[in-house]
Amino acid sequence: MELFSSKFWQQSRIYLLLIALAPALGGATNFINALYLGLITLVITIAAGLVNVALKGIIDKEARVPFTVIVTLTLLTIYQFYLTIFNASLLDELGIFIPLVALNVLVLRQTVLFEVEDVSKEFRKSVWLGVQFLFILIFLGGLREVFSTGGIMGTELLARDLSFFGEPGGMMIILGMLFALVKAIAPELQQEREKGVK
């Protein structure tokens, strides 16, 4: 599968983190959901990396992307079984966003381990990206919860709530505002991202 050549994964950090947000945004409706989604992504990233390193010589290089996705999806299906028994309400809220973690760029990035010599460097880079992703996601989820319910985890913060921010449109506006803020205070980050796209 030439679709994912290793060149694609040499993109800049910010580019990868932004694309990684795409499958998780819909699930991050509040702080707790965002925390769970971020943690699942981090754990699955580590697990996919370990499996890929362990089976590097056995699995054909051509099949690396389907292999990684099917392994991670199997793990996520097992996690769904666990949630059905012990935490059904969380399963209802996250819904399809649990299986979608398998298509997250941070997980797919682990396919690069089949190609490179220095496995530990790439592995550490992926885990570090996963940690950063976790923080971005809980920040976004927390912000969305504060705006849509007027407080966070039961603590009142705002005098009134704007239920619009609980809807998907609100998430897009929050993300757009944060983007603008990042662009305004850190123009060099912007340049790094543009360099990455080209």
Partner: peptide, 21 residues
């Protein structure tokens, strides 16, 4: 300058989502 590009795009999409609802 800082709002052009992706931020403006996302905010427009958000308003569109509100309209479509």
């Amino acid at each position: 300058n800082w709002i052009t590009g992706v931020p403006a795009q996302l905010i427009t999409l958000g308003i569109l989502a509100l309209a479509v609802s």
